[in-house]
Design a protein around this nucleic acid. Structure first.
Lengths: 160, 160
DNA sequence: TCCATTGCGTTAGTCCGACTAACGATGTAC
DNA sequence: GTACATCGTTAGTCGGACTAACGCAATGGA
């Protein structure tokens, strides 16, 4: 019995590095992101918002008005999806879409006063959600976590 | 002109915390994971494997044979998806599926010799891919990154 | 001993997010 | 003027997470 099943038992290399699976950064990332996304999506739903709304509104507030294509580049949202996001934001009077007189291919998107107010609310919601997301970490660790993520993401956006 | 557009310009609160969007951990996580997943998926495709193959094989090697449901719990793969993954692994003779004599509802999944060999190859592939994924980080930073991710994921699996 | 409940493997199908293709209209470079 | 690029938009693909429901087998009380 013991001998017959030996081949199925954990071997030395496994014992040397136990839980290899759980230590793979790629796997940790995707599993954590699944949970993070769910948390954020559900939290924002309570404020009649989606994460792209926040991305677009923040970008508009921080960097000023922009075309849809420019917003795509800033936020990483595909320009084909941007259409729908801006429809949702315009429906709610959070942004304004106006043709660019200097380039008639473009729309200029501008955040509205209402949009600013909404963004302030979303920022609070997201602060709370991130508190929940990062609960186990100390403030210093949270900073470090964000820093590490930023460096990794920067590296992989440069090299692609 | 200046006064008319003032409402559209970045305001003080934005200047105090620039690039708020890029600092949100949730956003960093999802964007980085998108890239990480693509990297891993493409890398494993070159070895005729998918990430679940690795998850299942590793689990079998480290913790021994198990039922499909047990593997689901270990790896986080839904039991409805596990069926297909095990079909792929069995097709390639990397695992064996045998009915459990003690509980006829169960299949007992065992890793094969061929499966062990394949897993060793996958481990090397993944080592390289993670080198690429974590390239900007020092060894100490990589450990820390994995540690932070692990703590976060543990917290969110306990509390769900 | 019957019955209700639970867990198993499996099939089918939903939902959503990332991504591609192609369009007409407009702008730019040679 | 002609070729090419960019813009907003529509439609659709693809893959991954997840749900529902099935028949079957085991379990644990009344």
């Amino acid at each position: 019995m013991i001998r017959a099943e030996a081949a199925d038992m954990p071997d030395d290399s496994a014992l040397k590095t136990p839980d290899r699976l759980r230590r793979r950064a790629s796997r940790l990332l995707s599993q954590l992101t699944t949970r993070s996304d769910r948390l954020i999506t559900e939290g924002l739903a309570g404020a009649d918002a989606r994460k792209w709304h926040y991305a677009v509104l923040t970008s508009l507030q921080e960097h000023g008005p922009a075309s849809q294509a420019e917003l795509s580049r800033r936020s990483g949202i595909y320009r084909s999806d941007m259409v729908g996001v801006l429809n949702e934001l315009a429906e709610r009077d959070l942004v304004e879409r106006a043709p660019d007189p200097d380039d008639r291919r473009r729309n200029i998107i501008t955040i509205s006063t209402r949009g600013r107010r909404h963004l302030r609310r979303l920022d609070k919601v997201l602060d709370d959600l991130h508190d929940e997301l990062l609960a186990p970490l100390s403030p210093a660790e949270r900073d470090q976590f964000v820093q590490l993520l930023t460096r990794l993401l920067d590296h992989h956006t440069r090299t692609s």
